[in-house]
Design a protein around this nucleic acid. Sequence first.
RNA 1: GCAGCUGUAGCUCAGUUGGUUAGAGCGCCUGGUUGUGGACCAGGAGGUCGUCUGUUCAAGUCAGACCAGCUGUACCA
Length: 461
Amino acid sequence: MEKNKKLKAQLPKGFRDNSEDSIDIRNQVINIIRNECEQFGFKNIETPALEYTEALGKFLPDVDRPSGGVFSFQDDDGQWLSMRYDLTAPLARYVAENYQFIPKPFKRYQFGSVWRNEKPGPGRYREFIQFDADAIGISNNYIDAELCVIVARIFKKIGFSENEYKIKYSSRIIWENLFKQIEIEDMQIPAVLRAVDKLDRVGINGVKDLLLKGREDQSGDFMEGVNLKNDQVNKILDFISNKNSKDDQLSSFEEYLQNYKDLPFEFDPTVVRGLEYYTGLVFEVELTTKVVNDKGKEVIFGSVAGGGRYDKLIARFGKEDVPATGISIGIDRLIYAIEQFDKIQSNKKPLIIIANLIPEQISNYLSIAEVVRDEGYACEIFYGSNNLSKQLKYSDKRKASLVIIIGEDEIKNKTISIKNLTVGKELSKNIDSREEWKELKAGQFIINKDDLIAELKKILG
RNA sequence: GCAGCUGUAGCUCAGUUGGUUAGAGCGCCUGGUUGUGGACCAGGAGGUCGUCUGUUCAAGUCAGACCAGCUGUACCA
């Protein structure tokens, strides 16, 4: 290493450290989701972070872009391994590999980190947590509807009211029928679907430009269009704005949803999803309230959850066509929204810190800590300097609720001093002079040694 | 990947037509105070001015290339 060159502490771009509060909120969200899935009879499984690259799909590491989209590396035996970029492809592998052992239909849910090696952006990371619930082996659309109901119930339990989100559904099949009618070539279909998928960001005129000659973005960059004929484009635009473009295959799905009139479902032909593997119903959950970024600017948040039917995916592993449908939620995006709308608060236990004024009193401090912990409170003893000032500063930074102070005076009088940091902080606003502040001992009071637990209950509940 | 913009302390930024030893606020550390958080006061640490090359007696400042970041856009299983 070069001399004088200090190691720079730096988080890899696109990755995050998580704070205690967001971990706590995440755990609460996961519990809500887990509970909902289990009530509908879904079983939990976990699969590993790594899979053989070929099991994940078409993204083999190539020489030009060694890790285009995925983090990959070569195993000892020369086989390529990749970090999973979603939970659906690993599920397909799991089902195909364990086909003779699992019950069919097979309904499972799963949480897990996934990784994508691509340019990070605002709200886009290279590591994030996904939740998936899938049903394998059921072709009846009731199950698609049931997945939508589960997701709707999850959002409801989290605290979103029915006008704050909606579940939009559509079907790939009605699009395929349209494409046949207006003679769109097979080659053009993915580009057309992608253009329609951008409706919420580029608007109806943007979609029109993309289907015709192309579109210029805000920075002046130009994107080539699909070059459809004018009347083809007009028919597509008509189709988008017509909420009655449904067909028969949606009827059992909608029949199921009729039983859940209090949940916000809505047919929307523009829900197409970018993914190629979908074969039937597709759905998306969208937040209808405005979302702002950390700079206070309003942003188009897009969908927080989505899914659909993918009847051909498992056949890749040599099985006969196995019908399958599923939904996934981007947990991190969901948490971002939850924090912004204050739907769930971190509910960490209040922390009590025992100041360490006299080292010889350690066994006394320890026994008090034990009693406090037995009552269910979080409690720690300060082991650093015996300087009380430092201990209080530390407690303040730790956002502790209370500090228990036992020094010579307290021992002599068989008392305990309790300092309520929250109350003290309030009081400090009205005090300017240092002497007065010290003298007041803001938020502090003395109790009888034996009354400790009773006092804690009184303050903290 | 493509396009536009921006790079000066941990953060936000100032730095004059090129001219001594590069600044401020916030944050951080120490002390005022070994029994009291905040406020206040005093002090301190922290910079190869994104990198390299060039122009010049002289470059944070001018030019070029590169790199990085941001924003938009594309791809997205």
